[in-house]
Design a protein around this nucleic acid. Structure first.
Lengths: 329, 329
DNA sequence: TTTGCTCATGAAATCGATTTCGCTTAGAGT
DNA sequence: ACTCTAAGCGAAATCGATTTCATGAGCAAA
């Protein structure tokens, strides 16, 4: 690739002037066109590595997520990407597999590659951000908090859990179970709390914990938990799934048992983008994943451009899309 | 962040020696430990930007795909990532939305960021790789060819289309339609050709094109095409979907019309990881997406380390997972 | 003892951009 | 006509690592 020096020589100016042309600093019209002409001829593209080294900042932001195969996170990624792209930033997607170690590696890379900032869906509440904060790189939390006082975009998880559960109650279900993610993940626990509150209010005599399962946020986790619940002496007549993948797993098992919703009521916190069910069979609390990504990216870009107001937390709300088929319909 | 100079000063050696310690070049034991000690104390991490500038190569590979929200590509990405990670490389995921322009931008970035190589699922057969080849960066094609003579990992698409269709014929269906992706995408067309060959052989009198729909490789594309097919004077009794998302869209429409498979036969080229259907209702030709990513990443790493044998193309085969429920069962 | 080699090491060049500094020149103000 | 200011521009420093080159020490072979 051509360098700035070759362009300078061809255009008959100094490298400094070439740089100025490409960075919008005042240069006379004739030199501008000479430089542009030379650059075109040599197919010159500025070397981003050199630029990053000198400027101590690159136009790359890292999006660190626990599960790249979860459509929820890819939708979120789309939101981030669209905003970033139109601001001239590119996005590096880092998949941590919910492992603290991988997460730490990626955060180190973000520092040593001079990335402009990080959007982080933390693997757990143990995530250490000391180094990246010391490096002065802004971090925005998405989906989950971090234990640090930083910008964040999260869901009203408790509310979402409540809404899902409440809707099942209204639909006439009486023994409502809950399958959620690992207890150490804030998101998982809050949704379960929403469920518990509603169940406790409507059925004060029931022992809620009998019908609560903490699992992994994965399809197989949903399957296992659902199998377990079905084999109880007194199985539930409805379940609330703590995220999309748990919902998929649970519904798969139900289908295999001939209990296709709404025979057994199902409400999912999260969307089922690739479901092949009738859309009216399952209640869904749609999470604004894309919007979450958009918001987080905007906040991050503000910080990158120097905004240092107090840390903000934006709380987004899910949207209840009720199942229309009732068991008594 | 601490620099190599500060470490050198603290350890009482030259920066060159510090570099050698971190790159496994012979240095006396005492200096090694002095350097390590100093590095630990200053929490030194080598600045990757500077290293990249000097070495003219970074430990980053780009994975350029047309649709990050398609589980097929995220599964492929997982394969790439696992191999790359264990070789010390990180992966930048670039989403082109099947747009040539975005793709070109990302390829330019790959060059100007000195990325070690690119794994590319091309947006179309128009992709221009001249620049990146001129820059000497290896490119491996996945899922689709590129029109260049480079390494590639592709599917036996025609075979997959045939197998899916053949299975529907064996199951007793007689009027089998096909919904596939844009005609200018090799993958889409080859699968349709497989379908056409089988249909022509078994039903030589039928006009195949009446039942063939080129669409986009997206859920809504599958929905539209399915609606169209259902409103034909003589609608099909089965369909072959050219990829996973088309399959999802088609099945959604069928479900809404009360034609849940296997009432109308469905075979999909591609997996339905988040389906909630009974697994025995739909025939699936499972594509080895992960394996494809793994293979491509290994090939790319070989090229990166200097291998310059002739370009190779690896063809992987899909696996037929037949539906067990027959319409006549 | 001398020659020849290897090994460890530091000084300095290098990668390719940006940016500071200082000089020149042109135009405004008096 | 004479400062004063600002704009345009080039030379050189800079970012932080790697790598070449030169040097000297240590050791083996002759």
């Amino acid at each position: 690739m051509a360098t700035i020096y070759e362009v300078a020589k061809l255009a008959g100016v100094s490298p400094a002037t070439v740089s100025r042309v490409f960075n919008g600093v005042a240069v006379s019209d004739e030199k501008v066109s000479a430089v542009r002409e030379a650059a075109r001829e040599l197919r010159f593209t500025p070397n981003r590595t050199a630029r990053t080294l000198r400027k101590q900042e690159s136009e790359v932001i890292a999006l660190v997520i626990p599960d790249i195969e979860n459509p929820y996170f890819t939708e979120l990624a789309r939101g981030v990407e669209d905003v970033a792209q139109s601001a001239g930033y590119s996005v590096v997607l880092c998949n941590t597999d919910a492992q603290l170690e991988k997460e730490a590696t990626y955060l180190q890379i973000a520092i040593s590659e001079h990335m402009a900032g990080v959007i982080l869906a933390a693997a757990s509440d143990q995530t250490n951000l000391d180094d990246i904060q010391a490096a002065g790189r802004p971090v925005v939390a998405v989906d989950r908090g971090t234990g640090y006082d930083i910008d964040g975009v999260i869901m009203a998880n408790r509310t979402a859990g409540q809404a899902a559960t409440e809707h099942l109650v209204q639909a006439g279900y009486r023994r409502i179970a809950c399958i959620t993610g690992p207890q150490h993940i804030e998101t998982a626990d809050e949704r379960a709390q929403g469920w518990r509150a509603v169940v406790a209010r409507h059925f004060p005599d029931a022992d809620p914990d009998e019908l609560l399962r903490y699992s992994t946020f994965r399809v197989d986790g949903g399957r296992e938990a659902m199998e377990e619940l079905l084999s109880l002496p007194e199985p539930p007549d409805a379940i609330v799934a703590g995220n999309n993948l748990l919902g998929v797993g649970a519904i798969q098992v139900l289908t295999e048992h001939g209990l296709t919703p709404p025979k057994l009521g199902v409400a999912v916190v999260g969307s089922l983008p690739f479901t092949t069910l009738s859309p009216s069979a399952v209640t869904v609390v749609k999470l604004p994943a894309r919007h979450m990504g958009v918001t987080a990216a905007k906040m991050l870009l503000e910080r990158i451009s120097g905004d240092d107001q107090q840390a903000r937390t934006v709380v987004l709300r899910g949207e209840l899309l009720p199942a229309r088929d009732r068991p008594d319909a």
